[in-house]
């Protein structure tokens, strides 16, 4: 399938506009169509109780279902929370309850058929690694990337589904010509959920992951989750200070890494918008013969 109902989530429309811009450009280059859902609600991000977020997410799922499309997310948290709601809504009794109590008022009914897929999964499963490889204009040779998934693209197992999804970033990095630099915490929490509750814990997590990427020789970390990006990029300076060391590890959004390899302009991908400078990465890039523009 090459068309998706697109759920951008709050953060790509708020503090990480560069994520939104880069994913739209990359999908354009891949000739994959996205139809953005503009009138749906925040997934609840695992903060709101599922008693209220399930109806909100059922509404989103019902709208995608009406369009006959799978729902594409670009945030690990959106994916995890909407994916978990979709799984609960497989239970006919629960679905009937949500339909009757919540969706009927708007004339909606969710039948339980919408598939929820993160952009990372779409790239590998719907577009294909070989196809992606064929489009590489600027191989990321000589550059090391540490994958950082965001919890909800790894766990819980029943929501994530196929086990191999836990290694997709590595596969994509290799296809784009880059080198994978593993870190022990690639599937752990970045610290973001604790930022307003227990800041020292959050900063310690951030320092640990970014510091390990640096110690292992990575040029950048790459994440499919904007909340991880807000934390690892936005809080890195404070985290490094708390850990009494310098880190300065650039953090790329997944579509930025893909976009660079496909020859897109770093500025257009929003690489200038990060807290931690990406200048060193940009300087390492080979020039592309002809400028690539996304449709």
């Amino acid at each position: 399938m090459n068309r998706f109902a697109f759920y951008p989530g709050c953060v790509s429309k708020g503090s990480c506009p560069e994520l939104y811009e880069s994913v739209v450009q990359v999908m354009g280059l891949l000739d994959m169509e996205v139809e953005e859902l503009t009138d749906v609600g925040c997934s609840g991000a695992g903060v709101l109780t599922s008693e209220v977020s399930d109806p909100i997410n059922a509404r989103t799922l019902a709208k995608a279902e009406q369009m006959g499309l799978a729902l594409m997310t670009i945030c690990s948290t959106c994916q995890g929370v909407i994916g978990a709601a979709a799984l609960r809504l497989q239970d006919p009794e629960y679905r009937a309850f949500i339909n009757k109590e919540y969706l009927a008022a708007e004339g909606l009914e969710y039948q339980g058929t919408t598939e929820v897929k993160h952009f990372l999964w779409v790239l590998v499963e719907d577009f294909g690694l070989d196809e992606l490889k064929a489009l590489v204009r600027r191989p990321l040779e000589g550059m090391g990337f540490s994958p950082f998934y965001g919890c909800y693209l790894r766990r819980p197992a029943d929501v994530v589904g196929r086990r191999e999804r836990r290694t997709y970033i590595e596969k994509i990095t290799e296809v784009l010509g880059g080198t994978v630099v593993n870190i022990s915490g690639k599937g752990k929490c970045c610290g973001f959920p604790s930022l307003t509750i227990n800041e020292p814990n959050a900063l310690a997590m951030t320092a640990k992951h970014t510091g390990e990427a640096k110690d292992n020789g990575a040029d950048a970390m790459v994440t499919p989750c904007p909340l991880c990006h807000l934390e690892l990029d936005g809080e890195q300076t404070q985290a490094a200070a708390a850990a009494r060391r310098t880190i300065e590890m650039p953090i790329l959004h997944l579509p930025q890494m893909v976009g660079l390899a496909l020859g897109l302009d770093p500025k257009g991908l929003g690489l200038g918008r990060h807290f931690v400078s990406t200048a060193k990465i940009v300087a390492q890039l080979e020039p592309v013969e002809a400028a690539v523009t996304a449709t």
């Binding site: 708020g14 503090s15 749906v40 609600g41 109806p55 909100i56 509404r59 109590e101 919540y102 918008r273």
Partner: peptide, 26 residues
């Protein structure tokens, strides 16, 4: 400075009233 944020108040999304109704129902 980096163009990551602006000072405008947060706009409502088109479906805002429907989401508000879900909260009331909840």
């Amino acid at each position: 400075r980096r163009g990551k944020a602006n000072l405008l108040p947060h706009p409502k999304r088109p479906g805002a009233s429907a989401i508000k109704a879900l909260f009331a129902r909840y």
